[in-house]
Nucleic acid binder design. Structure first.
Length: 480
RNA sequence: GGCGACGUGGCCAAGUGGUAAGGCAAGGCUCUGCAAAAGCCUGAUCACCAGUUCGAAUCUGGUCGUCGCCUCCA
């Protein structure tokens, strides 16, 4: 069965046929690094993480590019939002950018989001932007006004094809000062003249300034993926004007189809309303991780189809956590049984069930990355695994390996929702506590002169490399 | 005003023409020294109305309602 993707460009489910056989090129709009990442970012980037992971699992050679926006965004006041943050912190703009770029990657790492192959920064691609802007000027798709360069949307008859917006139906821009130098109210900036107080600025053929928001994605996707590539991803809230403008710039400048498949992810709300700082329902990824382990957050984000909105709430998260536990418990049980299982194929007939799970999983993911359906299949599978593991029949190590491998290649390497084996095998802190507990048990045995039990504990600990030494003031231990 | 989603059992959520997956919660039961885990059983005709069709949650039209976007946003 072939992979099908709902292409927002055209609004229909289509067979995925990559530009180059065996490869898939993907560009996803990345974050603006002016603050800590929130759970809305988590939903978005987990979705594309799973998409990239699944594409790879089918054997495709994926090249995944995701930008870091560290210049250019304007506030209503005309002030760059990164600069505003810098003023608050009395720090250099690039210091702010660096801080939140690192924080972004750290948060994503904790969520098990595999890093993109390339994470280009907008600030590092100013020359590439110049080149594209100059091309657009030469082709008269853009014009210079007072040191700024604007894209003339009236020169692109296809403008609006992604979001289905007709220019004349939109409300005119409200900023009089900005509108004054534009030919059409809908024209957007490719390059903005920097006012004196604007610290983050570059020399350009049109005077000192900084790039418009949309041009970076066009310039960087061209550089790393070429004029045409397979998949463009992002949040649905950026369909207009950002994605629409990207298409206009790139297709006018390159005379080539831009992205062939558009995958846009539904937004996340908190307790039914949009997340915003003023409402006090702004939840960072770090905050969420304090309450729930990363696999639970990933499971939650994938329990709804990526294109649909998700509502985050404590109630929903606790329900999700319980559902995840059931799956995780089965995996843990299988891991522990494997530790003591005899080698052999006992219970091998269960392999048929493994095959049917693989088939169900692939069918669900091939259908526009239907993770809710894939998870439903895993839950049914888990019921059968639990029955099997608890049935009392002898199960050989090979069979347990097969079960664990099945989980690993579906819930593990694709969805990224398995409990980590490390967490289950223990940590230094836990090991220390366990050893202390045994020492305390042994102390009780010694007090009651139960020397046989006391020596048994010491000998068995020694056998696994923990040496006990009795002192007048108590017992200490060390690794042998 | 324009664009776009959506409305499925108490909650979350798949399903886009052939008589409703899955999870959570709830109740009953099995297992069980206790606890936990696990398993079994129990529930919806799909916002409403009118059409198309042999047949619709699924297509068409309309009504009501929710949300997002049109200004920075993943």
């Amino acid at each position: 069965m072939a992979l099908r993707i709902f292409n927002v460009l055209g609004r229909e489910k289509q067979d995925f046929v990559p530009l180059v056989k065996g490869q898939a090129s993907m560009y996803v709009c990345g974050p603006t690094v002016y603050d800590y990442s929130h759970i809305g970012h988590a939903k978005n980037y987990i979705a594309f993480d799973v998409i990239a992971r699944y594409l790879r699992s089918t054997g495709l050679d994926v090249l995944y590019v995701q930008n870091i926006t560290d210049v250019g965004h304007l506030l209503d006041s005309g002030e760059d939002r990164i600069l505003r943050k810098a003023a608050q912190a009395q720090a250099k703009p690039m210091q702010i950018v660096e801080t939140y770029t690192r924080a972004y990657f750290e948060a994503m790492d904790k969520l098990g989001v595999q890093r993109p192959d390339i994470s280009p920064r907008a600030s590092g691609h100013i020359p590439e932007m110049f080149k594209m802007i100059e091309t657009l000027l030469e082709k008269e798709n853009a014009y210079v006004a007072n040191g700024s360069v604007y894209f003339d949307v009236s020169t692109d008859p296809n403008y609006g094809k992604l979001s289905n917006r007709r220019l004349q139906e939109q409300e005119a821009g409200t900023r009089e000062a900005v509108r004054g130098e534009k030919r059409n109210p809908e024209d957007f900036a490719l390059w903005k003249r920097a006012e004196p107080e604007h610290i983050l600025r570059w020399d350009s053929p049109w005077g000192e300034g900084f790039p418009g928001w949309h041009i970076e994605c066009s310039a960087m996707s061209l550089k790393y993926l070429g004029p045409s590539f397979d998949i463009h991803g992002g949040g649905i809230d950026n369909i207009f004007p950002h994605n629409e403008s990207e298409i206009a710039q790139s297709e006018c400048a390159n005379d080539a189809e831009f992205a062939r498949y558009w995958i846009l992810v539904g937004s996340l709300t908190v307790d039914g309303i949009k997340m915003s700082k003023s409402l006090g329902n702004f939840i960072t990824i770090e905050d969420a991780l304090k309450q729930f382990p990363a696999p639970v957050i990933r499971y939650f984000m994938q329990s709804v189809h990526y294109s649909n909105p998700v509502d985050y709430s404590d109630e929903a998260m606790h329900g999700t956590a319980r559902g995840w536990e059931r799956l995780a418990n089965a995996v843990r049980l299988a891991r522990q049984m494997r530790q003591n299982a005899a080698t052999g194929d006992d219970g091998g007939t269960f392999v048929e069930r493994l095959n049917s799970l693989h088939a169900d999983f692939s069918a669900a993911m091939d259908d526009d990355f239907n993770t809710p359906q894939a998870i439903a299949g895993l839950q049914e599978f888990t019921r059968d695994v639990n029955s099997f593991l608890n049935s009392g029949t002898t199960i050989g190590r090979n069979t347990l390996d097969s079960i664990l491998d099945t989980y690993e290649t579906t819930a593990g390497s694709v969805l990224g929702i398995l409990p980590s084996a490390e967490a289950d095998s223990g940590s230094v802190q836990r090991e220390t506590s366990l050893i202390q507990m045994l020492i305390d048990l042994r102390m009780q045995a010694r007090k009651s002169k139960n020397w046989a039990e006391s020596d048994r504990i010491r000998d068995e600990l020694a056998a696994i490399g923990v040496i006990l030494e009795d002192r007048a003031d108590g017992t200490v231990w060390k690794m042998g």
